[in-house]
């Protein structure tokens, strides 16, 4: 237990901050995922074949290729890619993409692919009758979407979004390979330094278990709150 003392002698405070880091990178990635879903749901639902193809490629690649491989792509190629784009706009200085952003972006892209599928499924299950109803009422498409469709979609999507959140939260453990000091990375450092991997990895597992259990409870509550039917 003295391994977990807060302060300079133990790993308690380090693991505490690492837990906060895991939570913040997971939330950021989840929101980035929403952002991508926001782009790719319409793209996938579009009638244009090229757009549809782009949308399908996105969801297929990011759900079919191992997370670790995607993280390595960003880890080794991330800065290079952003600087390449910046160069086109005439900016030649080094652009720092920190470990946090690299991690959140790579996990966010994966999370987004799953969210896209969830939202698409929810929209399709609402049915086209409602869209026609809106037309006959003379509502603007956007107004109608925000006030009528979106709330329904969100309600339908909550249980599956809960699953996407769990996947995203657990995927953050893989970011440890890029050097971001989250739970897994901190346990790895502590395990190497104290030569006590068993203790620290089990402790890490317990932290993750607490996080996943609480978020499960949270999503169940949300589901109950918004489930009128």
């Amino acid at each position: 237990m003295e391994l977990l003392i807060f302060g300079d002698k133990g790993w308690g405070d380090e693991l505490f901050y690492a837990t906060l880091m895991t939570i913040s990178v997971a939330i950021t990635a989840f929101l980035i995922g929403f952002f991508f879903a926001f782009i790719f749901v319409p793209v996938k639902l579009s009638k244009n074949k090229i757009l549809k193809f782009i949308g399908n490629t996105y969801t297929t690649v990011f759900r079919g290729v191992p997370e670790l491989l995607i993280i390595y792509l960003f880890f080794f190629g991330g800065s290079g890619a952003v600087m390449y784009v910046a160069k086109i706009f005439g900016y030649n200085e080094y652009i720092e993409i920190n470990a946090f952003l690299t991690g959140a972006l790579s996990i966010g892209l994966i999370s987004g692919a799953y969210s896209t599928e969830v939202f698409r499924g929810a929209i399709l299950s609402i049915g086209s009758g409602q869209f026609e109803g809106a037309k006959s009422l003379g509502l603007k498409k956007i107004t109608y979407f925000i006030y009528v469709i979106l709330p329904q979609v969100l309600r339908l999507a909550i249980p599956n979004l809960g699953n996407v959140w769990q996947i995203t939260l657990k995927d953050t453990a893989l970011i440890s390979v890029t050097g971001l000091v989250e739970i897994m990375r901190q346990s790895y450092i502590a395990a190497g330094s104290t030569r006590n991997p068993l203790f620290f990895y089990i402790f890490a597992a317990v932290i993750y278990l607490i996080l996943t259990t609480f978020s499960l409870k949270f999503f169940n509550k949300l589901e109950r709150k918004y489930n009128f039917s």
Binding site: G7, D8, K9, G10, W11, E14, I189, A190, G192, S193
Partner: peptide, 14 residues
């Protein structure tokens, strides 16, 4: 690197 003692390493305070 911070993982190759005694050249470079990390202590318990990180």
């Amino acid at each position: 690197e911070g993982a190759y003692p005694p050249w470079n390493a990390k202590d318990a305070s990180g």
